[in-house]
């Protein structure tokens, strides 16, 4: 008999067995949940997915036609959101990671603000969007450019202000991801650049950023996928009940997530709306998953390259 043999008391063995059982059950339950969720959506919505559903505008109180304006609106929304949010997030991350003294009060308050921002409920962002962007900024712009606070150009709910609201909401995602990417650039590379007489700024532009571009991209995509599925934050800021295909920057627009909410709560015929809901859900989920997988793919490419 070797020194490693021997028996645990029976009570401990039973306990261990149950622990494994519970863990396995939890794992199976999660997979089961996801599978049944998809099963329901696919079973309920797949037959309704068609080219015309994807390419046409809704008709007859959203009960007929397609959801193209919602797909297009969502895409435009996340595009403008990225254009607004990613540069600001990247700049903040550069400041925090490259310039700020890690112990300085200012850097610590910025970090605290970012973390707090990440924990704010999205409906609060929605209220902020109305209060700050629509009422304050929008009406202010109208007052300056058109001479009247009531000109209703910028001072109304719109795609632009929804994008801006989501940009603020996704800012923490971008900042954290970009900071992570910047930190991954080896110190040796920065030193090599500085030792050649590069300024800090030159080092950031020519060495640090090119080496973290994949990380910045990943962060942006994660932010986009977060933003694409967000409804509460834009509920009051410019989503429309139903529209045809035309979208203006300063006008309301249709959004996949909000469309789902509309279909579920505002339909004249609940039975008829159900397959539409499932199909819309499938499109929204597909979009989000596509973005997430792109981010994961880019990240794994980055890992294997490093």
């Amino acid at each position: 008999m070797s020194v490693f043999s021997g028996h645990l008391p029976a009570s401990k063995r039973v306990l261990g067995f149950f622990a494994v059982l519970v863990a396995a059950f939890a794992a199976v339950a999660i997979v089961g949940l996801i599978v049944s969720m998809f099963g329901i959506f696919i079973a309920g919505g797949a037959q309704h997915l068609s080219w015309s559903f994807l390419s046409e505008a809704p008709r007859n109180n959203n009960m007929e036609g397609g959801i193209f304006p919602a797909i297009f609106g969502t895409a435009l929304l996340v595009l403008i959101m990225s254009i607004l949010g990613v540069p600001i997030g990247t700049a903040t991350a550069i400041y925090l990671n490259e310039y700020a003294k890690q112990t300085s009060v200012f850097a610590r308050s910025v970090r605290f603000a970012v973390n707090t921002l990440a924990g704010v409920p999205s409906i609060v962002f929605g209220l902020f969007g109305v209060g700050f962007f629509v009422q304050f900024l929008g009406k202010g712009l109208d007052g300056m450019m058109y001479g009247s606070m009531e000109a209703k150009v910028f001072g109304q709910e719109s795609l632009l202000w929804c994008s801006a609201t989501l940009a603020v909401l996704t800012l923490p995602v971008v900042i954290v991801a970009v900071e992570e990417a910047l930190r991954a650039v080896p110190r040796e590379l920065r030193e090599a650049s500085l030792a050649l007489g590069a300024t800090k700024w030159q080092t950031i532009i020519k060495v640090v950023l090119p080496n973290s571009v994949t990380g910045i991209l990943t962060g942006s995509i994660l932010a986009v996928s977060r933003g694409a599925g967000e409804v509460a934050a834009i509920l009051f800021v410019g989503v429309a009940y139903s529209m045809d295909g035309n979208v203006g920057l300063t006008e309301k627009f249709m959004h996949l997530g909000y469309h789902l909410y509309v279909l579920a709560t505002q339909s004249p015929d609940v039975e008829k709306a159900l397959p539409l809901q499932y199909a819309t859900t499938l499109v929204l989920l597909g979009l989000t998953f596509l973005l997430n997988f792109t981010a994961i793919y880019i990240r794994s490419r980055l890992r294997t390259k490093a």
């Binding site: 030792a195 050649l196 007489g197």
Partner: peptide, 26 residues
């Protein structure tokens, strides 16, 4: 100052660029 005082490090630190771009960086 650093332009006048070159430095070679313990770990070789080529930039992930071409040989040509590495030399012309400075």
């Amino acid at each position: 100052l650093r332009r006048r005082i070159g430095m070679v490090f313990q770990k070789s630190t080529p930039f992930p660029k071409s040989i040509f771009e590495n030399i012309t960086y400075g």
